[in-house]
Measured scan of single mutants.
Amino acid sequence: MWEAGIQHIELEKGSKGLGFSILDYQDPIDPASTVIIIRSLVPGGIAEKDGRLLPGDRLMFVNDVNLENSSLEEAVEALKGAPSGTVRIGVAKPLP
């Protein structure tokens, strides 16, 4: 389960991407759907250096692409398709 509020994070995407990987996970509230979760951070990558994204965070959007009900493929496309420079990411943090 995740917090209702969405944290807005801006990262600078370079030639090596944003520095994290994702996975799809069965939604605990709606078993028929999936949620997109941050799986891991690349050591020394943009996301790890920034410090705000953590494994277990739920990915909600990338720039103007809503990922609340997306497939893993759609989420990967949104991340890979984001141009270099500032990328806006929304995440919901896990409940304590």
Rank of each mutant, 00 (worst) to 15 (best):
P28T: 14
V62H: 00
R88G: 07
N69W: 07
L72T: 11
G44S: 09
I29M: 09
S70C: 13
W2N: 15
K16Q: 05
I6N: 06
S71L: 07
M60A: 07
L53C: 06
E10R: 09
G19T: 01
D57W: 04
D30C: 12
E68Y: 10
A92R: 10
I37E: 15
G51F: 01
R39Q: 13
E10K: 11
P43D: 09
P28Q: 11
G19I: 01
A32E: 08
D57M: 15
E77G: 08
L11I: 10
L79S: 01
E48C: 05
G90I: 03
G17F: 02
I46D: 11
G14F: 09
P31K: 09
Q7H: 14
K93F: 02
L54H: 13
M60C: 05
L53Y: 00
N69H: 11
D50V: 03
N63R: 02
G45L: 04
E48T: 04
E73H: 13
W2G: 04
R58W: 01
T86Y: 07
P43L: 05
G90P: 01
E48W: 05
T86P: 11
L79N: 00
Y25N: 15
Y25C: 13
N63P: 00
G14D: 11
R88W: 06
L18I: 06
R58L: 02
M60K: 07
G17M: 03
K16W: 05
A47N: 01
T34E: 15
S15M: 12
G5T: 11
L54Y: 13
V87S: 03
I29W: 10
V35D: 09
L11W: 02
E48P: 00
G51Q: 07
K13G: 14
P43N: 10
D64R: 08
P83R: 07
D30A: 09
I9F: 10
H8N: 12
F61E: 10
Q7T: 10
A78I: 10
R88L: 13
E73D: 14
A32K: 09
L95V: 07
I29F: 06
F20H: 00
D50C: 09
D27M: 07
N69V: 09
F20A: 02
D30G: 14
P28G: 12
K80P: 00
V35R: 15
E10F: 09
L95C: 05
V76G: 14
F61Y: 09
T86G: 14
D64S: 13
A75H: 01
G90W: 01
Y25S: 15
G44Y: 06
G81Y: 11
P28W: 05
S33K: 10
N66I: 07
G45P: 00
E3H: 03
S33I: 06
R88V: 11
L41K: 02
G19D: 05
S84M: 07
E48S: 07
L41N: 02
T86L: 07
E73W: 06
L72K: 09
E48H: 09
K49W: 03
D30P: 11
A47V: 04
W2A: 13
D50W: 00
H8D: 05
W2E: 13
V87Q: 03
K80C: 13
L79A: 02
L67Q: 02
N69Q: 11
V62N: 01
S40R: 07
G90L: 02
V62K: 01
K16A: 08
A75Q: 01
K16T: 08
V76A: 13
L72N: 10
D50I: 03
P83H: 14
P96L: 04
D50G: 06
A78K: 07
H8W: 05
T86E: 05
L95R: 12
S33H: 12
E10M: 08
D30T: 12
L18W: 05
V91K: 05
